[in-house]
Design a binder for these strands. Sequence first.
DNA 1: TTCACCCCATTTAA
DNA 2: TTTAAATGGGGTGA
Length: 256
Amino acid sequence: MDRFLIKNSSTRKHPLLVECTDTVTLPEKAKLRKNEDDSLLAEHLTWKEIRAEGLSCDYTLLYSKTEADVIFQQLEREITYFPEDLSRVQVYGKWHNVPRKQVTYGDDGLSYKFSGITLSPKPWIPLLNSIRDRVELATGHTFNFVLINRYKDGNDHIGEHRDDEKDLVPHSPIASVSFGACRDFIFRHRDARCKNPTRQIESQKLELANGSLLMMNFPTNVYWYHSLPVRKKVLAPRVNLTFRKIIPNCERKNTP
DNA sequence: TTCACCCCATTTAA
DNA sequence: TTTAAATGGGGTGA
């Protein structure tokens, strides 16, 4: 029987293998490996550059639809999110349940704070390490933390904000990987957010597709807010992973 | 026309 | 100084 299981790499030594519980025949496996190898080569990725004043982002399809569909199902099976009471945020002095589900994974000894909450990461699991490996191979950057947001349908959303937390390594890019439903993603310049803006700066609108990677490079998060707005017509869930580089607690400088 | 949807300004006390 | 939230008003197009 020329059948076997493609196994996931728990050691991060084999980033080329995507976890797959299906059995496939030998020729199919060889084909799969070749396609994966091809799409993994950084130089084979086609990037779309999104540029504006103070904004630098790069977008690509990191996974084929077939791969992305498999990974989405794996995420749905393997990721368990923080309970509601552990992910309430404080905005304008009021506490709210977030209109989505969240969880963080990452290296030991890290923590990420925003809007009144501190998120401590769960230990890495093979599935997330495999995605992280792929992102690192494609971008040449390394990451030690991932925030996962699950939007169950178009009513789940996230409001305008910047990823400008002290916990982030200065100037480090953030890698946003999307699975499941395609959603609109909006950038707005900080100087265009009041009633009488001093300058007219156009919003930047993107669609984040299944299997896509959006790199948010410095200094995007200094000048631009981003949001995932409500989209009533979207009925399917989306899972988004934002890989980050967090300053380890032990290396953190005391600010007076 | 109607109304669901989208855009966006406002809120607020830590 | 800023706000990872909801809310309500106005515009719009199917």
